[in-house]
Design a protein around this nucleic acid. Structure first.
Lengths: 126, 126
DNA sequence: AGCTTGCATCGAGAAACGTCGATCCAGGCT
DNA sequence: AGCCTGGATCGACGTTTCTCGATGCAAGCT
């Protein structure tokens, strides 16, 4: 029994929770939480999986459509999906025989807001 | 002895280069390039380093100010800085005895735009 | 010249990661 | 019931990553 709870990065508030990188030196705890999500994105296969899920019309896609798109074994795809899920980037639902995955946009939103540069620091006005 | 060229994610154009995750399934090549940068962010130490660099008044910080902020050896910090640099996230400059690191905001901008949800989905007025 | 300090590079060892085949579980069939 | 199919889980193996101490290099000192 591992305690691999999904990262709860995308919970609660909206703007107040996610200061940008440039706002202030990041705390250890916050860095650990964010690193887990970024690490989940740090693999080409997972990035493509996430992109296929996110770009799917209707917002969800069956695993049976994901697996044949790669030159990898089915357990490997399943493993990557698990990591994305644990990172809070995707969610899954079983309907009958098939399992469908869908994006958790709140998580990618948070990451984007962490990386975003505060507009004030853009010196392009001169 | 692989030649680790810095990832050139933040080069050339601005909006046209970085479709979001949801825009379309990502190509293998693009996924490989993006994964390298995300992987660089997938470590708590590097996230904190990047945050310390990015949040520094004046835009740059001496390694001598970074190293004592961690419970890690100096070679380890140097190693992490190297990875961040190879990912194109930071740049360095030696001035006399000291080496200064600074953020490459174009790279974080690109990442943010990849993650951003086209909520308004308006590519907007350029 | 020699010494000292700041930082990078070089192995090395332990831990984590990506991948696989084998196996197991859940649902829908006949 | 039995069987088949879609997915997840389980070891196992090779590779990568993180960390360290030791060493090397560059720049400023005495």
């Amino acid at each position: 029994m591992s305690k691999q709870e999904p990262v709860t990065l995308a919970q609660g508030g909206a703007e107040g929770c996610c200061p940008t990188l440039s706002a202030a030196p990041m705390s250890e705890d916050r860095a650990v939480g964010l690193a887990k999500v970024f690490k989940a994105l740090g693999d080409p296969v997972r990035l493509r999986l996430l992109s296929m899920i996110a770009s799917r019309e209707g917002g969800e896609i069956c695993v049976c459509d994901l697996t044949p798109a790669f030159d990898l074994s089915q357990p490997t795809i399943s493993h990557h999906l698990k990591l994305l899920k644990q990172a809070g980037l995707i969610g899954s639902e079983r309907r009958g025989t098939w399992v469908y995955y869908r994006l958790v946009p709140e998580t990618t939103d948070k990451l984007a807001s962490v990386l975003a540069r505060p507009a004030a620091s853009v010196p392009s006005t001169s």
